[in-house]
Design a protein around this nucleic acid. Structure first.
Length: 535
RNA sequence: GCGGGUGUGAUGUAGUUUGGUAACAUAAAGCCCUGCCACGGCUUAUCCCCGGGUUCAAAUCCCGGCACCCGCACCA
């Protein structure tokens, strides 16, 4: 039995993960988070919130899963996700259509069957009109389309960051490996908006000496500090390096083995359509090898530019110059009477495109793009006016640095890295050594034996812990050892046992999961004692 | 999507070759026991992936589907 199988059977038995819709035969690519799984996942997400909202000062928003066609058309996803695939009927290999030779298989020359592979889930909005829409493939677009409002919210100060935790959907060709490749998955994404030439991070000093393991574009493996990585231009800018180091910190804190984290740079040909530099945090699995769990990408101005272009909404940011400048500008003045006559219904849109059109020299025509059509506008349709203007600043399209976390994968690797099997008196014994702050249950509370008034005391303690916001669990069934074992298997860091001494001096034992050591603590101090160790 | 393998209580397995009362371990529930690490006793509940076919009779043989695992392909 592989680690993976052991973990998945434990996860099912103990209520971490269930295959979805199992009573109907199940559905590939979907998993349920059970009672303990949901607690653990929430704890991971809240830890993430602590990093990105509290610490980084970002704000979280929540936007719809269902996304209209235009949004994802503009972002490039419609075209990127609708690849036409050709499968050779003779040798059964698959190709992209552009690889075909004269519409035949490039390998054996056989006939091919073409099909459209759409990796986005399609849906419709409205019952009668049925407007085409998709389930979002990433949460990021919801942030980008709100940019002009968010920019106002942050009182027009750049850089700022906005995050979203939510579901993303991809209709995978063949989902495999449990929750490693799901069709409906949870992602936590941060979109941080920078000035194009100032991708520095104010807290860079805090992490500049943190070491990170890198696999560069050229497959070189190196371990260097964040600062060096930027200085040697291995990582393109400070912000990317900062979020790489921060990601490593986060992964360590939720229980990923430090030695099993590395960052691999995307090669030019594997970059997503929107990214110009991307580093994946990969986590090592005994079962699956290195798997990407976090993508940290420099999306440059790609998305905002695309949405500005197709929506027509000016989402540029404004930057004041230190000193106002006087500049001479040649600006085009459209002659609307002539444009209207010639271009009729398109005239309005053309005017919009010509606004603020700036030229360097005297020219005899310009081109504008309207509805994806390039239109030539001759000299007779505009004047060129030279004027001196005072410029207080300039508009620019912010660049985006995006750390994007796959929560489900991280969830699995936390289980794998913390799953320990030991021999206890000849028997297999399993422990989930989760960090206390992400464990689903923080404390087991037991009476040593179920008699002589011990259960009453233990119940009261458990009640008090819950009142203190501590997820705890009362158990009196089976031997004390069996109860410890149950808690060890699901990663409960502390077990509190009420024994006969409790009745004499009001103390209980607290047992540590990983060492089985015990200490005595006064009943009144338990809640504080635990709180200190789970935050 | 293609090829191979697998599908039996909650979990892990036996049984399938040779059709005939489905077994074992762990986990679970209840009662008892229990002065600290799954180890005791009694009791209980829970299974043949789904649909068709062959047969007096199917967990077992045949066909189809689905799911899982492996390989190939695919993979923001």
């Amino acid at each position: 039995m592989s680690v993976y199988e052991k973990i998945m059977s434990m996860a099912k038995r103990r209520g971490f993960l269930y295959p979805s819709f199992e009573i109907y035969g199940g559905e590939a690519g979907f998993y349920d988070y059970g009672p303990l799984g949901t607690l653990l996942k929430n704890n991971i997400e809240n830890k993430w919130r602590h990093f990105y909202i509290i610490r980084e000062r970002f704000f979280e928003i929540s936007t719809p899963v269902i996304t209209p066609y235009e949004v994802l058309k503009s972002s490039g996803h419609v075209d990127e996700f609708m690849d036409e695939i050709a499968t050779c009927e003779k040798c059964n290999l698959s190709f992209k259509v552009e690889e075909l030779k004269n519409d035949k298989c490039p390998v054996c020359g056989g006939d091919v069957k073409k099909e459209k592979l759409n990796l986005m889930f399609e849906t419709h909005i409205g019952v009668k009109k049925r407007k085409q829409a998709f389930l979002r493939p990433e949460t990021a677009q919801g942030i980008f389309v709100d940019f002009y409002l968010l920019y106002e919210f942050f009182r027009r100060k750049i850089p700022f960051g906005v995050v979203q935790i939510g579901k993303g959907f991809r209709n995978e060709v063949s989902p495999r490996q449990g929750i490693i490749r799901l069709r409906e998955f949870s992602m936590a994404e941060a979109e941080i908006f920078f000035e194009p030439d100032e991708k520095e991070h104010p807290n860079f000093d805090e992490i500049k000496n943190d070491k990170i393991k890198l696999i560069t574009e050229n497959d070189e493996e190196i371990e260097i500090t964040a600062e060096e990585a930027v200085k040697k231009r291995i990582v393109g800018n400070e912000a990317l390096a900062y979020y790489m180091a921060l990601t490593k910190k986060f992964l360590k804190e939720v229980g990923i083995d430090e030695g099993k984290i590395r960052f691999r740079q995307h090669k030019k040909n594997e970059l997503a359509h929107y990214a110009n530099e991307c580093w994946d945090a990969e986590i090592y699995s005994e079962r699956f090898g290195w798997i990407e769990c976090v993508g940290i990408a420099d999306r440059s101005a790609y998305d905002l530019e695309a949405h500005i272009k197709s929506s027509g909404v000016d989402m540029r940011a404004f930057k004041k110059f230190d000193e106002s400048k006087k500049v001479k500008r040649r600006i085009i003045k459209p002659k609307m009477d002539k444009i209207g006559k010639k271009f009729k219904e398109k005239a309005g849109k053309i005017l919009k495109e010509m606004k603020e059109f700036e030229v360097n020299d005297e020219i005899d025509k310009i081109f504008v793009e309207v509805d994806r059509e390039k239109i030539e506008i001759g000299r007779e349709y505009f004047d060129i006016e030279e004027m001196e203007v005072v410029e207080k600043g300039e508009k620019f399209i912010p660049h985006v640095i995006e750390p994007s976390y796959g929560i489900d994968r991280i969830f699995y690797f936390i289980l794998e890295h913390n799953y320990k099997e030991i021999e206890k008196e000849g028997e297999k014994y399993s422990i989930l050594s989760l960090p206390a702050n992400i464990s689903p249950i923080k404390a087991g509370v037991f009476p040593l034996v179920s008699k002589d008034g011990l259960p009453e005391i233990a119940r009261k303690i458990e009640e008090d812990l819950r009142k203190n916001g501590i997820m705890s669990f009362y158990d009196e069934s089976g031997s004390i050892g069996r109860r410890y074992a149950r808690m060890d298997e699901i990663g409960t860091p502390f077990c509190i046992t009420v024994d006969y001494q409790t009745k004499k001096d009001n103390t209980v034992t607290i047992r540590f999961r990983d060492t089985t050591e015990q200490i005595r603590v006064e009943i009144d101090e338990i809640a504080e004692w635990i709180k200190e160790r789970i935050n």
